[in-house]
Computed example of a mutant assay.
Amino acid sequence: MGVASLEEVFQEYRDLLFAVAYRMLGTAADAEDAVQDAWLRWSAADRSDVEDPRAYLVRITTNLALDRLRSAQVQRETYVGPWLPEPMLTSPDVAEEAELAESVSMAMLVVLETLSPLERAVFLLKEVFGFPYAEIAQALDRSEAAVRQVGTRARKHVEARRPRFAIDPRERRTVTDRFVDAALGGDLNKLMEVLAPDVALWTDGGGKVKAARRVIYGADKVARWVAGVTGRPYAGVQPEDMRIRSADINGVPGIVVDGPERPICTITVDVDERGRVAAVHVVANPDKLRAITANSELPM
């Protein structure tokens, strides 16, 4: 296999490798680093016995991501406030593919954070990317029986925290816009109408901009917090200098709030089966807005 064909094979699967690494790690920068390390391993390895480059590259990337995730989990224990994944833009047609969109939604990635690194890897490779347990076992250097057990445990954990029901993308956009309109109007009654009683508000400022230090639960508390920050300066930007635009973020309709020089935050909402806002995810940590600033689109 020549140098040119080496690069061609890697580039063929690069988007897949990034998609795996991003779902494992939750940040674009870490995913990019894992993919770059995978290239270094691939270009230096003895590939004479590699029959399936796709499986081989996914194996390398998954294990690199596992190592990074174990280190990241220690760092996240000291993170200031709730930790949310780094938002990324997605193409509008992704929202039409429900399972694909769900696999990168903020709500799903938050649930995946509650799995062990091994559970996360097995769940993603099996449930999202469709690898058979035999290949996953080989990739993770575990027995197939052990991997099946881990996969079953992970799937039950996710299903218990992430019930499945279909929400039409157009309805999700409508609910998102209703929430934003109510928030901008500072109308507590309208906010209460669109929020589910047990709604959860996640605000990730990373200690760098104003954000709630804990997840806020309950429609009344969430409505009051949202009304309290709307119409006020944020991250050094005056309200009149803010611009709001619609964007598809992590597979769902979302909102980007821009300042004069850069995005200030992203907002996505999770919708329950009754068309109410079940969760709000606000990412305002400037370190996590680099992909949005660069208009980087998440390969699926």
Rank of each mutant, 00 (worst) to 15 (best):
residue 2 G to I: 09
residue 10 F to T: 00
residue 12 E to Q: 14
residue 12 E to G: 11
residue 14 R to T: 11
residue 17 L to P: 06
residue 18 F to W: 08
residue 20 V to E: 05
residue 20 V to P: 10
residue 20 V to L: 13
residue 21 A to C: 11
residue 22 Y to L: 05
residue 22 Y to P: 05
residue 23 R to D: 07
residue 25 L to K: 09
residue 30 D to G: 13
residue 31 A to R: 11
residue 33 D to R: 13
residue 37 D to N: 10
residue 42 W to C: 02
residue 44 A to H: 10
residue 45 A to C: 01
residue 47 R to A: 06
residue 48 S to F: 00
residue 48 S to R: 15
residue 49 D to F: 10
residue 50 V to L: 12
residue 52 D to E: 12
residue 52 D to S: 14
residue 55 A to T: 15
residue 59 R to Q: 10
residue 62 T to Y: 06
residue 62 T to I: 12
residue 65 A to C: 02
residue 66 L to A: 05
residue 67 D to R: 15
residue 74 V to L: 12
residue 75 Q to A: 15
residue 76 R to A: 01
residue 77 E to R: 15
residue 77 E to V: 10
residue 83 W to D: 00
residue 84 L to N: 06
residue 85 P to Q: 07
residue 86 E to Q: 14
residue 87 P to K: 03
residue 92 P to H: 03
residue 93 D to A: 06
residue 100 L to C: 11
residue 102 E to Q: 12
residue 102 E to L: 08
residue 108 M to C: 05
residue 111 V to K: 12
residue 111 V to P: 04
residue 115 L to V: 09
residue 119 E to S: 14
residue 119 E to H: 14
residue 123 F to T: 04
residue 124 L to W: 00
residue 125 L to T: 11
residue 128 V to R: 12
residue 129 F to T: 10
residue 139 A to E: 03
residue 140 L to G: 09
residue 141 D to N: 13
residue 143 S to P: 00
residue 143 S to Q: 09
residue 144 E to K: 14
residue 146 A to I: 00
residue 150 V to E: 03
residue 151 G to E: 04
residue 151 G to V: 08
residue 153 R to F: 02
residue 154 A to R: 11
residue 157 H to I: 03
residue 165 F to S: 05
residue 165 F to G: 05
residue 170 R to V: 13
residue 172 R to K: 15
residue 173 R to Q: 11
residue 174 T to W: 04
residue 175 V to K: 05
residue 182 A to H: 04
residue 184 L to E: 04
residue 187 D to K: 02
residue 187 D to Q: 01
residue 189 N to Q: 11
residue 190 K to I: 02
residue 191 L to M: 03
residue 192 M to D: 04
residue 193 E to F: 00
residue 195 L to A: 02
residue 198 D to I: 01
residue 200 A to T: 11
residue 201 L to V: 09
residue 204 D to T: 14
residue 209 V to P: 13
residue 209 V to C: 09
residue 212 A to Y: 01
residue 212 A to H: 08
residue 215 V to K: 11
residue 215 V to N: 08
residue 217 Y to T: 12
residue 217 Y to K: 11
residue 219 A to P: 07
residue 220 D to M: 00
residue 225 W to K: 07
residue 226 V to Y: 03
residue 229 V to Q: 01
residue 236 G to F: 09
residue 238 Q to I: 06
residue 243 R to Q: 08
residue 250 N to A: 13
residue 257 V to K: 07
residue 259 G to L: 01
residue 260 P to E: 00
residue 261 E to V: 08
residue 262 R to S: 12
residue 265 C to V: 07
residue 266 T to C: 06
residue 268 T to R: 12
residue 271 V to G: 06
residue 271 V to W: 04
residue 272 D to Q: 08
residue 273 E to M: 13
residue 274 R to C: 04
residue 274 R to G: 09
residue 276 R to P: 01
residue 277 V to S: 08
residue 282 V to Q: 03
residue 285 N to M: 08
residue 290 R to P: 00
residue 292 I to W: 05
